[in-house]
């Protein structure tokens, strides 16, 4: 134990501003997320990523679906679109294509949760990945439907408890990394909210890389998931990540499956160069122009 020494007295300062404040709709903060929830961490990493990319609030649009993560778009200063449950990606596809017509370097980021993107929105996810539409899709995976009170979702580990699985979830969950990779995404990464710096780096890469880029963020949900699964606080869940996560860049996406009490492999799994939707489309339009 360190010897107790006199604590340094802080300076009291007035009118302080968070360094990333310009990215936040500060008039809407503090946000609604629970103590220990990782969404605030994901949001600060996003803001930090945008700042390091020197992307201003007007260079980016954020699209989100319904759920706790869905509220994130509303807390960011950029043009933000809080769409219907599961439909963030098709909305963003339309938005991104329209922007390509008059502001092609405008970034469109989809920020949503595991239920929104992979249960009701799953069909849209795999098709957008197949098309390699130029979107950065960031999924905050907290293993349950938090907003609606802790129901199990498509990523809830086998045997984990939720309000709709009081005896333990008896379904095999998705391996989101494997799903994204097999659908054709040229960039797939997974980090937890513990790995803030690498998460921010992954977001930067995903935002800048053309095509359908995917980042999974494993994030604590103490009040609804953790509480029912022996992780009563965000801190306990973060410690779990600390003990279970293993950084293995370019591991086989198949191995990224999260088994109960098993390893959580994090890192960049896929980072390929591949013509994106607009490259292919432009080629066909040029061909059409020649034929006339």
């Amino acid at each position: 134990m360190r010897k107790i020494k006199t604590k340094p007295t802080p300076e009291i300062v007035e009118d302080v501003h968070h360094p990333l404040e310009r990215y936040f709709r500060k008039e809407r903060l503090p946000h609604i997320w629970c103590p220990g929830c990782g969404l605030g961490t994901a949001m600060s990493c996003l803001a930090y990523a945008l700042e390091e990319l020197s992307l201003g609030v007007d260079d980016v649009s954020i699209v989100s679906g319904i759920g706790c993560t869905g509220r994130l778009a509303g807390y960011m200063r950029s043009d933000s679109y809080h769409t219907t449950h599961g439909r963030a990606i098709p909305f963003a596809t339309g938005l991104r294509i329209a922007m390509e017509m008059h502001k092609p370097d405008h970034k469109v980021i989809v920020f949503s949760g595991d239920g929104d993107l992979f249960a009701i929105g799953g069909n849209h996810f795999i098709h957008a990945a197949r098309r390699n539409v130029d979107l950065a899709v960031i999924c905050v995976n907290n293993f349950n439907y938090g907003m609606t009170g802790g129901q199990v979702g498509p990523t809830t580990p086998l045997g984990a408890f939720g309000t709709t699985a009081p005896y333990g979830s008896f379904e095999n969950p998705f391996n989101l990394v494997y799903l994204a990779a097999s659908s054709g995404a040229p960039y797939v990464a997974r980090w937890t909210t513990l790995h803030t710096r690498r998460l921010k780096q992954a977001m930067m890469e995903a935002i800048m890389k053309p095509g359908f880029t995917f980042v999974e963020i494993i994030s604590p949900c103490p009040v609804n998931y953790g509480r029912r699964n022996k992780m009563p606080t965000g801190l306990v869940e973060m410690r779990y990540y600390q003990s279970k996560s293993v950084i293995r860049n370019f591991a086989d996406p198949k191995d990224a499956e999260i088994k109960p009490e098993g390893e959580i492999i994090v890192g960049t799994f896929i980072d390929e160069d591949k013509p994106d939707y607009f490259d292919i489309y432009r080629h066909f339009v040029e061909q059409m122009n020649q034929e006339k």
Partner: peptide, 23 residues
């Protein structure tokens, strides 16, 4: 731009997105 989507849910969502993209 013409876009055939994976279903009508996506079609309607894409239309809304495109409108907010200014077209």
């Amino acid at each position: 731009h013409f876009l055939q989507m994976e279903d009508e849910l996506a079609s309607m969502a894409a239309v809304l997105g495109a409108v907010w993209g200014g077209v």
